[in-house]
Nucleic acid binder design. Sequence first.
DNA 1: TTAATTTATCTAACAGTGTTAGGCAAATAT
DNA 2: ATATTTGCCTAACACTGTTAGATAAATTAA
Lengths: 198, 198
Amino acid sequence: MASKDRKQRLKDDTRRNILDAALRIGKDEGWQALSMRKIADIIEYTPPVIYEYFANKEALMLQLTKLGYCMLAKDMREARDKHTSPEKQLEDMWLTYWNFAFTQKELYQLMFGIEVNCCVWDNSIPEAEVPANMIWEVIGNLMGDAATEDLICKRYYTFWSVVHGLISINLVRQGVPDGMNEQVLKDAIGGIIHAIKG
Amino acid sequence: MASKDRKQRLKDDTRRNILDAALRIGKDEGWQALSMRKIADIIEYTPPVIYEYFANKEALMLQLTKLGYCMLAKDMREARDKHTSPEKQLEDMWLTYWNFAFTQKELYQLMFGIEVNCCVWDNSIPEAEVPANMIWEVIGNLMGDAATEDLICKRYYTFWSVVHGLISINLVRQGVPDGMNEQVLKDAIGGIIHAIKG
DNA sequence: TTAATTTATCTAACAGTGTTAGGCAAATAT
DNA sequence: ATATTTGCCTAACACTGTTAGATAAATTAA
């Protein structure tokens, strides 16, 4: 029954090819230009085949969204593990978040509905909680004994808002003065860390 | 030649009706569901008529975007004029910005490309600069002699990032704990104002 | 008043979209 | 050798934005 395995492997390949093709179109032409027929062209199948791997276009994009969260989590984990002090960890993790948003611009757009109407948010993306939880933990460590659920939460959203906000602004508009991004970002992160340490 | 005027008035009415219909669809069913045919149905014309008023769907949505900026500017102007001290003005203006984002959620989405691929950003929206300039001015007033172009810019983007970021997060996800928004928002605004005053 | 012209509006179509139903042929299982 | 499953395709449906071209009404010119 080794042929079963071989077949499964082929199916896995095709599934991967579909996702790869979709991502490539998203990167090359923007999500707006993504269509099932274009994907089918690239993988050299007819469109209905895609529906054997994904329920519909949205489910396909949801998978890419999850991929994005996994990649982001990996990057942030590595950033965290480069340091021992929670302070440095936080700094580097948010800087990594920032960099991810631009090196993986299209995935970031998908993950946060920037210029694309992203997937439904019934809690069907557990992957999204991984980066969040990592940040939470480090904030808790930085706070030490003063850490309460509520306070961590507040700091987390403050961090996230300012970083995600600045990213969003940059992604939909062009014209933030050069050097301004770095100033605002580092200032804000430093400021919040300072506030946490009291 | 009064009939010319009457006709012009009718044309203006139709144009307004088109925009109204589009906005209503956006509010009722989401921008994703907006179509030229649906607009045509509502205004009781056939689709091609719309193209006598707007070059295409995007131009129509751009007009709604501009409308959004005008409404936001009006709200913020009123907020500013309720106070005399720059501090109170800033506070109220950003709170007004926040409220606008939720009372006019669909327009805000359009203006900032949240869950909708918004209009091109070649500087074809001078209306967008009005709220920005108002904030700039008040920040400058608050800074007094210490005000420099660069410093104002930095504070402006810091404000905007955190407010817009928190709004974005709320609009694409549900599940920010209750009361958290107000805490983060007021904390951040207060913190930045504090930083500005040195 | 009649003829010419402009204006308002429509129908029909093109090329594209997501998605589904049904068929055919090859591979597999009985 | 027959039955069944699998893989993949063609064709279609109901949409989408947009345009070309016809038609009838309103306006202007003779």
